[in-house]
Write a protein that binds this DNA or RNA. Structure first.
Lengths: 211, 211
DNA sequence: CAGACTTTGCTAAATATTGCACAAAGTGTC
DNA sequence: GACACTTTGTGCAATATTTAGCAAAGTCTG
């Protein structure tokens, strides 16, 4: 059974919320409460949660810990993914420092850059290689996922080198350049520019509709 | 006429692409070419572009410069938005350094943080205030948009202070915490964690379906 | 333990979004 | 200028996603 992307996205958010609720005082939570906290309709929450069998109790709600484990199981990986971070500039460093990067689901095995100040160094205990070594290092470390945080103009070149490792399975890109990938390689992009433009666009539209 | 969010998102991407094509050699481009470069179906491209009147020529395609201006007009703002960046940590600095922030559509008028090393300083020529001053500074500078780049635990507190300025109209959040806003304030979030989790989830699913 | 609530799981309807297919329009060649 | 292409714009069908509504199940109160 295939799960739709928006559903997965919400499951991730429920999971995150439940983790923070585990330290709270109530051991039970209703779809309404979850929905209100995340800005999602309660019926949507129920539909998402009932996707994998009945887990809530009518008249009561969902048991926080149980539900959390339940979602954890759905989202869980059978293995720890090996990841490479390409581009150790401001953004790359910000990512590395981010708590997200202390996950049990993946491990950043190698860094890549072109800056001679960084290449050869250990940064936050991870070795930084020259981007030209990426195919070899990826093969040696079985790296299947690349996080791309380089300037737009270099994105495609870097990706092409990563592709030549033949181990690449997924890319999370932070650059705004469109990149061409062999089909079969999953691609997700975090596009700051697009989000900001969208915000400004709909702000404009809203003001226009008022006046 | 209301434009759907996915459409706006694609328009932004077309615009970005067209800008880079303006320096290229061909002055004309087809919906097929645009689609291939961005991973979008040609029919979708045509539908998006014809939303605002006929602008292409059958048998030829779209005139790059003309199309670019056309989209620019759709996306254009009647004013330059005043923006505050809340949180001048790694991520905030990365954003400031990003080329996205040299836009003619908005201007970062003020920075906010709690770190005594930063408060009172000018960072990249913009003054950094203590977060407690945000309501006053926002009012004085007519700041309507806040970019939130603080640790999750501080997100709500910061936003509450920004709300009390009464000038807040939109938020672009980089924190993973859900925040409660008065309705009427637009909210967009860039959620690194969610994107990464989605990537890993669908990678897992894909491998599971193969084996 | 009856009656008033609450809340789930699910089905069906409503919306939103994408993709197809084709006529009409433009280009190029001989 | 006839014929073979290419490519747009668009109506309609197909998919995807969200929302509403409700019976059934569980809780609480007196």
């Amino acid at each position: 059974m295939r799960i739709a992307e928006p559903t997965v996205e919400r499951l991730i958010k429920y999971h995150r919320l439940l983790i923070s609720m585990k330290q709270g005082n109530s051991s039970v939570v209703s779809s309404r409460q979850i929905g209100d906290m995340l800005g999602i309709k309660a019926s949507q929450v129920r539909k998402d949660l009932s996707y994998f069998g009945e887990i809530g109790k009518p008249g009561v709600g969902y048991h926080v810990e149980r539900l959390c484990e339940h979602i954890e199981q759905i989202l869980s990986s059978p293995k720890v993914w090996s990841v490479a971070l390409v581009g150790v500039g401001n953004l790359g460093m910000a990512l590395m420092g981010h708590s997200v990067f202390q996950s049990y689901k993946f491990e950043v095995k190698a860094l890549f850059d072109v800056d001679p100040e960084k290449v050869g160094q250990n940064i936050m205990n991870i070795h930084c290689w020259h981007i030209d070594d990426i195919a070899r290092v990826m093969k040696e470390n079985d790296i299947e996922v690349v996080i791309l945080a380089v300037p737009a103009v270099e994105a495609q070149t870097c990706i092409d080198k990563a592709i030549s490792s033949n181990t690449l399975k997924g890319v999370l890109s932070f650059t705004q350049a469109p990149v061409i990938l062999p089909k079969g390689v999953l691609f997700y992009a975090v596009d700051v520019f697009v989000e900001l433009e969208k915000l400004l666009f709909f702000l404009k539209e809203k003001e226009r509709n008022i006046s």
